[in-house]
């Protein structure tokens, strides 16, 4: 199966290991993976702030970059859900409407791709530790990917998965929300941090680095020892 890796700009620039692990997992399960160098950002920072034209500039670049791809797979429910919105955003645009539809239909979040497309629920990974899972809002609500990451996590040998209280709640990141409404954001992320502590987990696992860097950054500030870890790091073990 031919797959194009969508690294997300966040993982490309800040968390390269997340993209590396995603690439290696895809290769391990037999995919032929390429990485289109023309890719940039899904456009979400501009789109969610109300800057439609600026967002569209970014989105067009993404569609061009992945024009020849069969599958586009990335390690972020939020960024992939943005890609999936393109048909809605370019509706009525004679030049891009069709392409947006074709593009969105081939985009997948990594755990979704593994479970739903590849039919894989056990990667034969081993990871020792007590972990709790933060289900990110866009991944579960906009993309509709809820169970896939947990199915994969439960099949990792050595992982003790404990429920996160108020798991359904947002961590308070919300893109520019975190800097536009820092006071509310702080309350939200502090509450999330408390819930993570209650689980006594050593690791907070997630499938979106945006949320993880928000919660992890707050826990660092509070001097907590919990480590944030992207799900692909756990899955890419042997």
């Amino acid at each position: 199966m031919k797959v194009s890796l969508f690294s997300t700009c966040l993982s490309d620039i800040l968390f390269a290991d997340v993209a590396k692990n995603t690439l290696e997992i895809l290769e391990r399960v037999g995919c032929e993976v390429d990485y289109p160098m023309e890719q940039t950002c899904c456009g979400q920072p501009a789109y969610n702030s109300g800057y439609l034209q600026e967002a569209k500039a970014s989105m067009k670049q993404m569609m061009k970059a992945f024009r020849h791809s069969e599958y586009v797979v990335g390690p972020s429910g939020s960024c992939v859900s943005m890609l999936k919105e393109y048909p809605h955003i370019f509706k009525g645009d004679p030049e891009w409407e069709e392409e947006a539809k074709v593009f969105a239909a081939k985009c997948y979040e990594i755990t979704e791709f593994l479970v739903d497309v590849m039919g894989i629920t056990d990667l034969g990974s081993t990871f020792k530790g007590r972990v709790t899972f933060h289900s990110s809002c866009h991944m579960k609500r906009l993309l509709g990917v809820k169970e896939q990451p947990k199915i994969l996590l439960r099949n990792v040998e050595g992982v003790e998965l404990v429920d996160l209280p108020w798991e359904e709640d947002c961590c308070g990141f919300g893109g520019t929300f975190a800097v536009k409404n820092p006071v509310i954001s702080q309350e939200m992320v502090s509450e999330k941090s408390r819930h993570v502590s209650e689980t006594q987990a050593e690791y907070l696992v997630g499938a979106d680095m945006g949320c993880l860097m928000n919660i992890g950054g707050r826990m660092e500030r509070e001097g907590k020892k919990v480590k944030i870890i992207h799900i692909t790091e756990i899955l890419n073990t042997h």
């Binding site: 490309d12 800040l14 990485y35 975190a178 702080q186 860097m213 660092e220 500030r221």
Partner: peptide, 17 residues
């Protein structure tokens, strides 16, 4: 504004690309 509330993760190393 970000670091008033929480730490920011510096880039891990070279970019993925």
């Amino acid at each position: 504004a970000w670091t008033e509330v929480r730490d920011f993760y510096a880039p891990q190393g070279q970019s993925f690309r």
